[in-house]
Simulated scan of single mutants.
Amino acid sequence: MASGTTEGKLDACCLTEYRPLPGTPSGQIIKIAGIDTYHVLGKDETSKGKAIVLLTDVFGLTKNPCMTADEVSDKSGFDVYVPDLFNGDPIASSLLKDMPEVPGENFVGKFVTSIGPWMFKHRQAVTAPIVEKFLQALRSEKAVTRIEAVGYCLGGLHVMLLGGSKLHLVDAIVGCHVSMTTKAHFEELQVPAAFACAQEDNQFSDAFRAEAEQILAHKPEIPSKFLVTHGTVHGFASRPNPDNPVIMKAYTQANDLIVEWAKAHL
């Protein structure tokens, strides 16, 4: 989504997607702290002041995150926001053709070589201040008092930071196939945390997941949950293949976890 998008309308680039989910986004584009943000209005009047924020993967604010926001809002009744963290400069979702879709498939090198320069341009030192500014403005401009942050892949790193002891800017988090996380991120968590995990994920291995579960098990004051989905690899919760019923089932499970966690902890 390009910076300067006409408020209230989804432009053509916002609707592009390598494997688009069916349907048309029902929300609109607004600006929060100068950041283009997809917003879908929740239907539950008793939940006003509570919000779910989706922090995207490297493919940014295209059609699929909007459709996910619509489903999550419809099921939860909460307002859902999806900020453009990359100022209209995401990785092209067409590169998904080089990524595995089911367990046992291998990466194609083109994706790895393409993403390096982009990752430096949008490194944590650049994107983290955008995330923080957005959340602070969401509370001040929209009178939001309780926030669940949901992060996909790179966005998963940011939700770990947001729920940690140094920032503590949100009230609950859900990580979906998180990446770039360390033991320290789990040790520093201070808010209820749930994770939707792939069966096979080179960014969040079985061994690391077991270690993370053990760390949080020693923090009983912080509710935690890990969901491992069958037949999936990294990316299933954000860019699923709509023609694969196994992956779509896992995608729905991830959305249901987001809703369950928000209702329990906001």
Rank of each mutant, 00 (worst) to 15 (best):
L227D: 11
M99Y: 04
M67P: 08
A184Y: 08
K142D: 15
A262V: 10
A193Q: 07
H122V: 00
V246D: 10
G42D: 12
E211R: 14
S47K: 06
A193W: 02
M160L: 12
L161G: 03
K166N: 15
R239K: 15
K249W: 02
F86S: 00
T252P: 04
F120D: 15
E200R: 12
I30G: 03
E260L: 06
G163Y: 02
E101D: 10
P22N: 11
R239P: 01
C176Q: 05
Q28T: 07
K263C: 13
T24G: 10
I52P: 01
T37Y: 05
F120Q: 13
E211Y: 10
E260G: 05
G235H: 05
I247S: 06
G8R: 01
V233R: 01
K9F: 15
L227H: 07
V144T: 14
D98K: 08
A198Q: 04
L15I: 04
A196I: 05
T182I: 04
D44L: 06
E71M: 06
A254E: 03
L189S: 07
A137D: 14
W261C: 07
T24K: 13
A33Q: 09
R209V: 14
T37H: 03
K43H: 08
L21Y: 03
A143H: 01
E221N: 14
E7A: 13
G109H: 12
A198N: 05
I130W: 01
L154C: 11
L21K: 04
T127W: 06
D206I: 11
H122N: 13
F195R: 02
E101M: 11
M160G: 08
S93M: 00
D36S: 13
G231P: 06
E71S: 13
K142T: 11
C197D: 05
N106C: 09
R239D: 00
H185N: 14
S76W: 00
T46P: 09
I173E: 03
L157M: 09
D74R: 06
C66W: 01
E132T: 12
D79N: 06
E45K: 06
G116D: 11
Q214C: 12
P240I: 05
K225T: 10
V159Y: 05
E132G: 02
K121Y: 12
L138Y: 01
S114K: 12
S94C: 06
C197I: 11
V112A: 12
P83G: 00
V112D: 14
A198F: 05
D57A: 02
C176Y: 00
V191A: 07
Y38L: 10
G23T: 07
V72Y: 00
K249H: 09
W261D: 03
A2G: 15
G116T: 14
E148F: 02
